[in-house]
């Protein structure tokens, strides 16, 4: 269908698309209603991953997958309001590819994979290669987002977002962290602080080095506060923020450093406590 109507705009929960239409920012020639495509509402295991249909709402991610995907669930809880979470989907977030989308940082941190479908078949693209520009993604015109694949957590995950209101707010900046205890890896994702959602590769590498050198994964030992500060600074350095109505570039950088430091401390604390228990 998408192949026959390459300019058709797919709509699922409508939480992004309808705003564009209501505000007269876009007038698509036609729309494809994905909300009525039942296959997109399924999720299940696949080769050690969870394959989650693009139509699964944030509300369901929180209630059905919160224990396996704590980072994504934490991000989902900060999406809009109950009404929005009941309608909005990760698939929609991926389709819009707004740098402020709340789902992107945890997808990046957990190295999720996006599944695109077309009449030619399916292809899978790592989330880290999916965001190609401001509100632009790697999807072809004849493709639809079918699902995303993400590993269930095997270590603590965190998500943290700065907004100037205590609920229902678009991110000034956000940060997601995944500790992969099995592979002893650190994953990061940054939202709303660059033209696209980005990772902080240097920060990941730095922290993996600190953990490896100290044998901290095995010892579940304490982390030197200076390492946390360095990690925060490297996360901030990975951002390329701008000044806009929601905040200044300088503030975004500053806040990312704080969020990175805090979330890592919370996650590592959780990792250490799990061993005691």
């Amino acid at each position: 269908m998408k192949a026959a109507h390459p300019d058709a705009l797919p709509i699922a929960g409508g939480t992004d698309v309808m705003v564009e239409i209501n505000f007269d920012r876009s007038r698509p020639d036609s729309v494809i209603d994905l909300a009525s495509v039942a296959e997109l509402d399924d999720w299940g295991p696949e080769d050690g991953y969870l394959r989650i249909g693009a139509g699964v709402t944030y509300t369901r991610i929180i209630s059905e997958l919160g224990d396996r995907l704590p980072g994504l669930a934490m991000a989902s809880r900060t999406v809009g309001s109950p009404q929005i979470r009941n309608r909005g989907t990760v698939g929609g977030n991926l389709g819009s590819a707004s740098p402020a989308g709340d789902a992107h940082p945890p997808l990046l941190a957990s190295k999720a994979v996006v599944e695109l479908a077309s009449s030619a078949g399916i292809r899978r693209i790592p989330a880290r290669d999916f965001y190609v520009g401001p509100k632009k993604n790697a999807m072809r015109k004849d493709e639809l987002i079918a699902a995303f694949l993400i590993e269930p957590s095997n270590g603590p995950q965190q998500f943290s977002k700065v907004g100037t209101r205590n609920a229902m707010v678009i991110a000034v900046c956000s940060f997601a962290l995944t500790l992969d205890a099995k592979r002893k890896r650190v994953g990061t994702g940054i939202g709303s602080a660059a033209p696209t959602p980005v990772t902080a590769g240097e920060a990941e590498a730095f922290m993996q080095g600190v953990l490896d050198e100290g044998g901290l994964w095995e010892k579940r030992g304490e982390i030197d506060p200076s390492a946390l500060v360095r990690f925060g600074d490297l996360v901030a350095a990975a951002a390329r923020p701008i000044d806009d109505v929601r905040g200044t570039a300088a503030y975004r950088r500053h806040a990312l450093a704080v969020l990175a430091r805090r979330t890592f401390a919370w996650a590592w604390d959780e990792y250490r406590r799990k061993s005691v228990a």
Binding site: V162, R165, N166, A167, V169, A171, R262
Partner: peptide, 15 residues
């Protein structure tokens, strides 16, 4: 979290 600055967005646990 609802009682914290930053609210449900999980920005501080008291820090």
């Amino acid at each position: 979290l609802t009682q914290m600055p930053g609210g449900v967005s999980n920005t501080t646990h008291g820090e």
